[in-house]
Nucleic acid binder design. Sequence first.
DNA 1: GTCTTGTAGTTTGTCGACAATCGACCTTAT
DNA 2: ATAAGGTCGATTGTCGACAAACTACAAGAC
Lengths: 218, 218
Amino acid sequence: MEIPGVTKSIVEHLRSQIITGQLKAGERLNESVLSNQLEISRAPLREAFRVLEEDQLVVSNPRKGCYVADLTQQDFIELYQSREMIEIYAIDLLEEMRLNELNDVEAALKATIGLSIPTENESADEKLNYLLKFADFHNSIVKASQNRQIIHFYRKIGFHLARYQFMYAYKPGLTSDSQKEHTKILNLIRSNKYDQARIYLRHHIKSFVNLMKVRITS
Amino acid sequence: MEIPGVTKSIVEHLRSQIITGQLKAGERLNESVLSNQLEISRAPLREAFRVLEEDQLVVSNPRKGCYVADLTQQDFIELYQSREMIEIYAIDLLEEMRLNELNDVEAALKATIGLSIPTENESADEKLNYLLKFADFHNSIVKASQNRQIIHFYRKIGFHLARYQFMYAYKPGLTSDSQKEHTKILNLIRSNKYDQARIYLRHHIKSFVNLMKVRITS
DNA sequence: GTCTTGTAGTTTGTCGACAATCGACCTTAT
DNA sequence: ATAAGGTCGATTGTCGACAAACTACAAGAC
């Protein structure tokens, strides 16, 4: 036998392939073909399919096979509603706990300073990594809420969000603004201005959505 | 071969066994034993494990096996925070959409009228069914929001909620109050008093949590 | 020409078997 | 007596093979 935990690594591999678009929406996932490519048997591959299906990154028709999940504009809207719901509620919880240290949030914010935008011809993994660094700011706020259920759900929708952003948002235009807005949100929470933080966060998310909408439709 | 979709039915079987406590928290899930009992091979069983693991109803230690997930009081608190977050936001969405018909909500509410409480010696499935009928009221509100991501997440945490309620809440005491409170919430939404609906819903959930806390600790 | 039916090839769903690892028990040395 | 180490059974992780179902294509009936 080789390394244990093949299923887990297959899940991560396929997930990043889907997010980065190397596996396209609607694409068929043939078990034999994939298991040959990845040089594993079909059993762990099928286990990976079940995980990805549960996360709604693939859909499976019984006796027909698995396909990469579609990517509709409606999904995009619903995902950002979910994101807004979670992040706003995370701040509610921070307020309730009187928690405003947020060292991890600051660390995530600092990690984005001076980050240069990947060019078109850089590898998919490079681009994805860049996106995830920015997403980490939002992740760290949700993590600070210390609600594991919500963190779990946010992580899941994070994969879908990354998928959209990978298609439309890894190009210049947003990052510098994001940086400033992230800083402002962090400062508002730190000075216990939770109401303002929520309002500003909502604004931050909605303006991003509007920007993305333009890109999607154009 | 037998019926297709064995994995799916295994998932549902194990899930209801876990919710009803026939499989207890922390219990070991031996693959050979279970596959013999259920008269299936280990392959679809392992696929089912991956699904349940993703839903956090089982935890898996690599090379050690799967166990039924624990059931801590902290989980209980976090689940009810999630529930509050989702249902309140669902009403936000209803308000945004100016949606106040809610025929499905009314249907779910009516389905609980005159429902008698299962006695101790009734079957686990009977008890579970009773609980799910009451939960359907809350489900139908979330469904009315038409956000599939949120509906999906709510369904997931619904299984965990059912698990707690099965342990502590299928006995008399809550139902008649719940009925009244559900009716009030529906009426508030219908008359476009969304703010009041949110406040009352929050109160409804929190009072239930407090009642459950007493039962858990006593 | 179109619709039906049959057939061959492909693909999924399931199974039993093997290899690697883990855990419990027993032995042995200090 | 306790701790270290080795051995054996039990269990997971993986694989290849078989059977059922589906798809596509072709031949034939109307």
